[in-house]
Design a protein around this nucleic acid. Structure first.
Lengths: 199, 199
DNA sequence: GACAATCCAGAACGTTCGTTCTGTAATAGC
DNA sequence: GCTATTACAGAACGAACGTTCTGGATTGTC
């Protein structure tokens, strides 16, 4: 009898099928559904497989003992620019990181909005027309922040800068003027990130 | 007896609490856990609330009758630049859209990698150092695509361009030369999007 | 002040859950 | 050829599940 039993790895397709199911339904199914998903007809074996995935970090439990995705469940390969040999097959590298892009960008879901960028007034800040700006809603900001302000009942994305004791909105494009709205302006939120889709 | 009974809306904090729970555990809890989450002590009332959320599109069921997030569960306010009056309180606007940022960017999870951008050779394309490039892995690409190529066992992000019957890698920054690696190069994948975090 | 609707508590009930135990076919090692 | 190990199948079991029903407290309407 060995003391430290190393459980063998499982059919990797099991994990992929689970991830596909999760991608579709956003939920971990019950053991009986897992059984049919994996082509198994014994819940006892499902239980065993779940234990192995749990040990591998792909599954986990809530405090109420409900099965949930583990830390590695959402991992996407994060490839670094400086990768060594063996790179053509990146599956070897274990440079895993990151969970969901959502989690990466959104800290407080209830205060986070997405704003579609119009125009190229912030092009020098790498903010292009059509980009989705991740905005944390808050009524104030620091000088130098990229803010989403409300001017003439429209959203506008600019740098917040100080000028003669007041605040102005400065574009990142020499072709545009600095905005000094009479009557001031309201800050909708601060840029927390951006998302661009190119396909 | 009315024919079309319009169920009254629920305490919105119920939905927020559920979303918070889901953000932490990535799973919809059972009715008894929901009860304690909402400060309710009757599963019957939880059942009623779930039905209302279901009718409102915030919850749904899997084919196996398991509770799962509905279409509107993940919605984030997508604010358009050209918004009309009443904007200071964007909760009024029903300009809902979009589900997860992940879903927005990632079409084929198993073929999608994230590459951290190094250097500023693509700055004129709005691709900055530190950005996360969403890459769909594939061995070929079209001219004009932003590709992630493997040169000297390192990732490099460039435009794919044609030149004298061959392919070259062109930066988006006049300070950098066009790359014509002897022995050619390998394409790791094509840019599908990018993610930048600024906080 | 009567009535209906809403919000919630509590209990009953049949179903489904995940665990555990026993058993078996296939493969591998010596 | 014997023995271990692995990969499943099948059944049994108590606990937990979600549904449904009854009922009470509160609020608003006329």
């Amino acid at each position: 009898m060995a003391l430290n039993v190393q459980k063998p790895a499982l059919d990797p397709s099991y994990l992929e099928k689970l991830q596909d199911y999760y991608a579709e339904h956003k939920v971990i199914p019950s053991y009986s559904v897992l059984a049919s998903l994996w082509g198994i007809s014994a819940k006892s074996w499902v239980s065993e497989c779940v234990k192995r995935f749990e040990e591998a970090g792909y599954l986990d439990w809530t405090p109420d003992r409900q099965l949930k995705p583990g830390a590695r469940f959402f991992e996407r390969r994060l490839a670094d620019s400086a990768v060594q040999a063996g790179l053509p097959n990146p599956a070897i590298a274990d440079g895993y990181d990151l969970i969901t892009i959502d989690d990466y960008l959104v800290k407080v879901p209830s205060k986070t909005s997405l704003v579609r960028v119009k125009g190229d007034s912030m092009i020098d800040a790498g903010i292009h027309e059509g980009d989705l700006l991740v905005v944390e809603q808050q009524p104030n900001a620091n000088v130098g922040d990229v803010v989403v302000a409300i001017v003439n009942n429209e959203f506008t994305v600019k740098y917040l800068e100080r000028e003669k004791g007041g605040f102005v909105l400065k574009p990142a494009n020499k072709a545009y003027p600095v905005l000094r709205p009479k009557g001031g302006f309201e800050i909708f939120g601060v840029m927390a990130g951006l998302v661009r889709r190119t396909r």
